[in-house]
Nucleic acid binder design. Structure first.
Lengths: 199, 199
DNA sequence: CACTGGTTAGTCAAGTTTGAACATAGGACT
DNA sequence: AGTCCTATGTTCAAACTTGACTAACCAGTG
């Protein structure tokens, strides 16, 4: 399974635990997860089972709400917590030039890391993006001087550059919001992320 | 199979036809396709077979180069040409707020459409992106005033907005390049896209 | 000549994703 | 009361993706 799916499902259980599949399903759909992450409902249940088999999630029992169908709830194991932080940290400190899914994952799950690290990681991204943009200019030069690479391959790099600039601006903006206290990060007192009202 | 994989493989056969799988494999990897499109070599061969079974591609025979292994070459059928243009046109005239794969596909394959349409489509995208950004501000307002949606859902929209702005700038820039004659579009005299020198 | 490592061209089994379908219950409407 | 639609909670078969692996050939080296 893709890293994205595992990270999203593990992160979502971590935030809402103990939690059952259908709640995750609805919540993730409100985040438009199906539009950017190759995740449909079946993928969520498959990920729950796979992560459970790998020891990262554990079943927390079954329960019912009123006369509704019985549901299985999950929680993150200690191994799962370690793996979640590992994946998040890897994502935070790595800039992908062409793939936008990792940074989309950050917008929803970086709060499991500490505020100080996230700020440092975002600052690093701002710098790393500058380096990648500079690197892209050399790729573009190579395409221009190549007699074998189609000229339009330039546009892959041009678009990636334009988008990285947008992402860089977001990183600056969100850093400012985080610095001034927005959101609740690991280790901080504060309410758990609110359950959706329809739970 | 995902629309992206079908479009990429059909588009690549269209550009390089008649062409065998290994050439596509190497060519697409130089375009970093594996980094943003869930396409590894096995997916290319699976797509070739699936598109052939659907009638969009036809085997063009087998050939050998020197003592190398025998290879099967493919070409696009008339149905395939129709489908390719349909998918490309749909992609060109549709702005996705969260998914960046479609516009990445455009950078490599929009040359199968006519120059005039591509310019019109890009202009439309510039406008459509403005609308989506405006729409995103209302989503952000909703998140802020909601007592049930986690506050950080705002960041999904903020990042999408920042990235759309970058894409919008690219659309403007590439439009200018296209308007002044860069690249070769459908119906225009000009060399086929150059084969990679290692063919 | 023999060996080693790289290239060509494609295959393959396991895991993942998709787009419903399924079973049950509740609510609205006639 | 009966019917239809929606909600809950999950499963499922088919198709797709992954990350090698395979077989044959080529080039370089000792």
């Amino acid at each position: 399974m893709s890293t994205t799916t595992r990270l999203v499902v593990l992160g979502a259980v971590h935030q809402f635990q103990p939690v059952h599949g259908y709640f995750l399903r609805r919540e993730l759909m409100t985040w438009h997860i199906d539009e950017w992450a190759n995740i449909q409902p079946g993928s969520i249940y498959n990920a729950l089972r796979s992560l459970k088999n790998d020891g990262y999630l554990a079943e927390n029992g079954t329960e019912t709400a009123g006369n509704r169908p019985e549901r299985t709830t999950y929680r993150v194991t200690e191994e799962g917590e370690v793996e979640l932080l590992r994946m998040l940290r890897d994502t935070l400190w790595t800039v992908e030039v062409f793939d936008t899914k990792p940074v989309m994952v950050l917008t929803s799950f970086m709060y499991a890391l500490q505020r100080e690290e996230v700020l440092a990681g975002l600052l690093h991204r701002v710098t790393e993006i500058d380096a990648r943009i500079a690197s892209n200019t050399y790729h573009i030069g190579d395409v221009a001087s190549s007699s074998s690479t189609p000229a339009y391959v330039r546009e892959i790099f041009e678009l990636a550059t334009a988008r990285l600039r947008g992402e860089q601006q977001w990183a600056r903006d969100v850093s400012e919001r985080i610095r001034t206290g927005d959101y609740v990060f690991a280790g901080e007192d504060g309410d758990r992320p609110a359950r959706a009202a329809t739970d």
